[in-house]
């Protein structure tokens, strides 16, 4: 049984972490987006400035705040802005 949240990383977030996705363990009772991000930043400090301007999606839907609850099996995506043309 899965105990983790899959974090999908795009663009500059992908480079900061050096992977396209990471599996992040969360308590079976769930956690919040904010707590997850804090944990990620602790492990990858270079993510911090990128997260500020990024949009997050939970299971394919954009989430606006960071209080959203997440639990095992959820998928969180971090989408930093980019402007190449």
């Amino acid at each position: 049984m899965t105990r983790s949240v899959r974090v999908l990383l795009f663009a500059t977030a992908r480079e900061a972490v050096g992977a396209a996705s990471v599996d992040w363990e969360v308590p079976a009772s769930g956690s919040t987006v904010r707590a997850l991000l804090a944990g990620l930043v602790e492990e990858h400090p270079q993510l911090e400035p990128i997260l500020k301007g990024s949009r997050l999606a939970c299971n394919g839907v954009y989430v606006r705040g960071r209080r959203a609850r997440i639990g095992p099996g959820d998928e969180i995506a971090i989408h930093p802005p980019y402007s190449g043309g």
């Binding site: 500059t12 400035p49 990128i50 500020k52 301007g53 949009r55 954009y62 802005p81 402007s83 190449g84």
Partner: peptide, 20 residues
């Protein structure tokens, strides 16, 4: 609605710096 404000300068590699 997607990105309310531009990111601060320097955070995202600019035009000429990044490959594509």
């Amino acid at each position: 609605c997607l990105y309310p404000e531009p990111p601060p300068p320097g955070l995202v590699p600019s035009c000429a710096e990044g490959g594509v």
